[in-house]
Each structure stands twice: as C-alpha cells, then as structure tokens.
Design a protein around this nucleic acid. Structure first.
Lengths: 245, 245
DNA sequence: AAAACAAACGTAAATATGACGTTTAAAAAT
DNA sequence: ATTTTTAAACGTCATATTTACGTTTGTTTT
C-alpha cells in the first residue's frame, strides 16, 4: 500500500530523557550527513530532530507517535504537542538547502512540534538504523533548520509544565530517591532547593509512596526508594495555591 | 499585488472577551450561511471561528494578527498559539462539505489555533462587513467544522494559563474592582473563593495598585478601583510556591 | 433618621515555608 | 574491631500564608 505524504506538513519530536547519574536533561537527536555528488566535499554534517511528513490519512498525534516509535521503539510515552513552527524562512539555512533538495520537500513546510518525556535507560541507541545521540539541553550541538529554537521552546514549555504538574516522574525510573527528584527539578528549573525542606515537602505528598526497598550497590547509607502514584494524584484537588495572582 | 494562499494551511482565532456585567466569559464567532443554488433550501446556518489561509510569505503569528484585525479592528492584544488541529476528518461534517466546496479549500486543511484575550467593550460588533456575535463559553451555539472542540481546548489552556500567570487582566478594563477580579477568576475556573481572603490576597500584591478613584453611579458603597502593573509583575520572581509537587 | 446593602477591615487557629542544626546507617579506612 | 567518612534522614523554630469566620463602614434608598 502506497502512503501519500502531505508535502508541506511534518511533525518534529523533541525527545527529552534524564540521566540520573550525570544529572543532565538530554535531548535525542539524529545525525544529518551529506556529501557532494563528486564525493569529496562534506555539504552537511550536523544534527536534527527526528521528524517526518504527516501521511494523508493520519492524525497529527498518530504521526508523532509513529516517529517516536521509529526512533526509539517506544510507545505510550508522555507526549505533548506544544507548538507549530511555520515561518517562511525556517528551512533556508545554508546547509538546509542541499538537504531539502536531496530529500525533496517543500521549503515552506510547517511542522507541528511535540515533545516526549521518557527514561533515558529505555532507549537503545543501537537498536535500528537511525544514527542518534543524546545531548544535554544546556550543551546542544550544531542543529539544522530551526531545530535549536524548537528544542529551546520545548524546554521552556516543559519548565512551565513542571511548575503546574508532576510530569517530572515521566523522566525518572519507577523507583527513585528523594534526592533524584530534587536533582531533576534543579536541573530543569536551574534553581537550588534546600534539601531538608524539599525532602519534607515531597514526602508529605500523599501520591509519593515509600516502598519497602532501598538503593543497592552504593558506598554510603542507601537511600529509601519511592514511587509516584498517578491515580492518587488525579484524585486530589488542591484549591490551595490555586491562583498565581 | 496578488497574495498566494497556502491551500491546506490556515489559522483560526478564538477571541475571548469578558463581560463584567453578566460575569460571563464570551467567545466571538462569525455567522456562516449558505443557500442552495436554486435558492430555496438553507444548506448551512451556524457559526464558525474566524480564520483564514496563511499567505505564502507570512509567518503564522502575522497571519493570526491579520485575522484578528479584520475581525475586530484591534491589534496588540494578548495572543497565544495554543494548538494545531489537523485530523483528516476535521472538516467533514455534513454542513462543512457544501461550505468547503463554495469556499474552495482543501478538506485536509491543518489549522493553527490561537486565542486572544481582550476587553469586550473594545469590539464594535457593527464596524465592518463580518457578521459576528459573542456567546458565553458555557453556552455555545451550533458550530461548524471542529470549532467547538477548538474553543473548548482554548478554554482549557486559558484555565491553566490563569493559574500560572495574571493574564486575567487582559480581560478586564484598565481600572477594576477587587470583586470584578474575583468574579472573573470564578467564572473562568468555576470555583468560588471566600471574598475576604481573596481580597486580602489580591490587595497584598505589589503589582495591584489602588488608584485615587472610586466606582461611580452605583447604588451602594462605591468600590475602590485598582490597576495592574505588568512592569512590577515582571520584576518579581517568586521562588515561593514554585513547584507544584 | 433608619434601613438596606455590599465594600472593606479584623482575628485566631491551622498549615506551610525558610533557614538552619543534629542524628543515623552504611561503606571504607585504619 | 574500631574509627572515619559520607550522605541520608530527622528535628526545631521563627515567620508567612491560608482558612474560616465575625465586624465595621460608607453610600443609597426608604
């Protein structure tokens, strides 16, 4: 069955992963490489977000889910459509033009940008043909098209989202320590919290559940492990602190 | 100069206005009407959001601003691009097909949806050829395409936005009473607040400024009027209550 | 002048925050 | 086996904020 692509419409996926060891919020990007016809000259050698054209009969969400699956093999990850990018000059960088010519798509392509939150450990970097790599949000490589801007806007949206909802647990392993939660908040928001106060605040939440298990293989007092209960969170409604004003 | 439209791409604008008298959050929509060629039969008679195709050389933001200007004559209103809608069947309602045929656009049109916040009083419903009308968000009329869904999603996004930032003042007159602020929060969020506590909380904010003026023409003790200072708000940074967890 | 009405102010208990000091459990070093 | 090291975990207190109410005040209407 031949699947028709919509020529001027694509989705792009910003895949966020968190590395508890390096305490770094990372983005998964794909290698873009092109040599000139004669072979000698390297025309394009940088990174881009994974994205693809939307199919004729496909919803936008399905399209993003499909792209994530091709990239990581994963389904059912936290997903948010956060912005559309469609400025007329967004694909007109010096390195973008030869790439567009090779891939044969419209220079006025609108892209619907999504971000995904997942656990770095769930992604096998070698499991398929796509050459991909994690980079810290704070230290991105050279990126094609307007993809650096897309990543930075996704990151801003994620920051706001973190303030409003506990999405942070999408980035942590199922079992985590309080310090890991604190480190993650700190690296996303760029603020330091007092460990004792942070700890108290988190532990007091009904939806953070201490489990009967501790860290193993650490050369210090092993931390208590906790889990996050989305069900309990959903049942709660805090009128308290509701309005920002 | 001929301006080329991108056939499968549009913007749609959800225009929110607040009526302090009826305490109702309203949406501005446009009449859609079509009779059959023979004249007798009414094929389409409902409302839609105002929207239009994006021009070939135009940014998405500029396109939305242009549509708002055509509809209301206003520029420089609070604007947010909140979501793209592009499901394959979004324009395939029974009444949508004759309309699409008449207007001659692609049934697989992706729309970039924006919402605007403005003061109802600033819109003159009779100032141009577009037949338009305010409807309460809680009591919308029959709407074409997927526009009811778009409005409801804009409303959800607005609710969240209100919790995070004082965007509410975009919907109020420059000079307002504390009770008007409370009524507006209550009608958007659908929650009641204790007037005395709400009042104290609002008045204590540095960016809510009491002015040397009171309500006039009311048959009770006239309220003190206040203004919102965006400048002072921007200068503040509250680490306090930062994370939702 | 009194009544009606909503604006505006006040109070006290409970809860949350911010800024710290102290104790504890495990591994590593002696 | 004991001590040292390290980070986890617990505790305290002053201050700020919230919640749930009661009371006073200024204007218009009766």
């Amino acid at each position: 069955m031949k699947v028709e692509k919509i020529p001027n419409l694509s989705v792009d996926c910003v895949v966020f992963g968190y590395d508890t060891t390096t305490k770094s919020l990372n983005v998964l990007v794909m290698k873009r490489y092109l040599e000139s016809d004669t072979g000698g000259e390297v025309l394009v050698d940088d990174y881009v977000l994974t994205g693809y054209h939307v199919y004729e009969k496909e919803t936008l969400d399905a399209s993003a889910t499909r792209v994530l699956k091709e990239l990581t093999g994963l389904t059912n990850q936290y997903k948010k459509q956060f912005k559309a990018f469609g400025d007329p000059d967004r694909l007109t960088g010096a390195k973008d033009l030869p790439w567009i010519k090779k891939e044969g798509f419209d220079a006025r392509t609108i892209t619907i940008a999504y971000y995904f939150l997942l656990k770095t450990e769930d992604v096998d970097l070698k499991n398929n043909s796509i050459q991909k790599k994690w980079f810290p949000v704070k230290d991105l490589p050279e990126l094609g098209f307007d993809h650096k801007q897309i990543i930075l806007e996704a990151y801003e949206d994620l920051k706001i989202k973190c303030l409003a909802e506990p999405v942070i647990f999408e980035l942590l392993p199922d079992k985590f320590t309080i310090n890991e939660v604190q480190d993650l908040y700190q690296s996303i928001l760029g603020i330091e919290f007092d460990n004792r106060n942070f700890r108290r605040k988190v532990i007091n939440k009904k939806y953070i559940i201490a489990i009967d298990e501790k860290q193993v293989g650490v050369s210090k007092k092993p931390s208590q492990l906790y889990m996050f209960s989305k069900d309990i969170y959903k049942k709660m409604f805090q009128k308290n602190y509701l309005i920002s004003i």
